[in-house]
Amino acid sequence: MEEDETKQRVKLGAFVIGGMLLFVIAAIFIGSASNFFSRTFVVSGIFKNVEGLKEGDKVWLSGVQIGTVKTVRIVTVGEVVVSLSLKEKQNDFIRKNATASIGSDGLIGNKIVVIQPGNSPEVIQDGDTINAVSPADTQQLINIAKEVGENTRSITLDLKTISSKINKGQGIIGELLNEGAFSKELRLTVHNLKATGENTARASAELSGLVHDMKHGTGLLPTLISDTSFKSVFAQTLVNIKKVSKNAEVMSRSLESITAKMNNRDNAVGVLLADTVFAHKLQNTMKNTESASHKLDENMEALKHNFLTRGYFRKKAKQEKKEKEKLEREKNK
């Protein structure tokens, strides 16, 4: 009986040790198979240069990690086969013509594989080869960046001189913006033009009345006018004059509106003077401030009656009273 028990215990011991070993081995194995919980499939791509990509690095699709790099293997010089183990769930999003490229993630620059999903109707399958886009050489990238930088610098320099010129009131734009002599002249011109236009209109109206009189003929002139050839020439002239005067009027009006705009909206004082809405707002604000200070007064009054602070205010009042009395006493002396 004793022997039996010992045997049983030996068996139990063997079982326990075996179980523990199995557990530890499983734990170590599990850790290395990183996509343990989801079924995976494998695709591979051929790169020229993987820039330090290694096993276990991440694979991104639209910035989401969908798998890991399974192996990196050089086949010949300039050909590196990278096989990717991807989660089966993401299978539908990656098409036959998807591309893989190598990018980097974060500041330190861990390498990652970035997949562009592609748009062909067929979905990628286990064991397929994905089109690999080899990354541009780093030095090349730096050169391009340098060139872009140079260009940007010269552009900004030009811009700087232009803006400084404008600021100083040089050039037409500068003068316009800074209300220089030119803009005054322009305004004067426009004014004159307007006056001219008005005169022209009046003249033409008078002329048309005269012509009417002439047509319906009293006096000497009608005879002259009834000569048909002259008549037609004269009418033509009149029409032309009318057209000119109308054009001048339109032009002067639009010029006037332009100058008015320039005058009113260009500076803050203009806005203040012209914009009634703003003025109204300002008025409102003033009113609000007034009422707020009134309310504050009320609050203070309320505070005085609050039981917590009553003591303080009473004390204060007493002190004031005392001081007043003191002053009066001094005055009386």
Partner: peptide, 14 residues
């Protein structure tokens, strides 16, 4: 092995 196995059985029972 026997003492080891007995010991681990003992530990397990504990």
């Amino acid at each position: 092995f026997k003492p080891l196995l007995l010991r681990s059985a003992d530990i397990y029972q504990f």
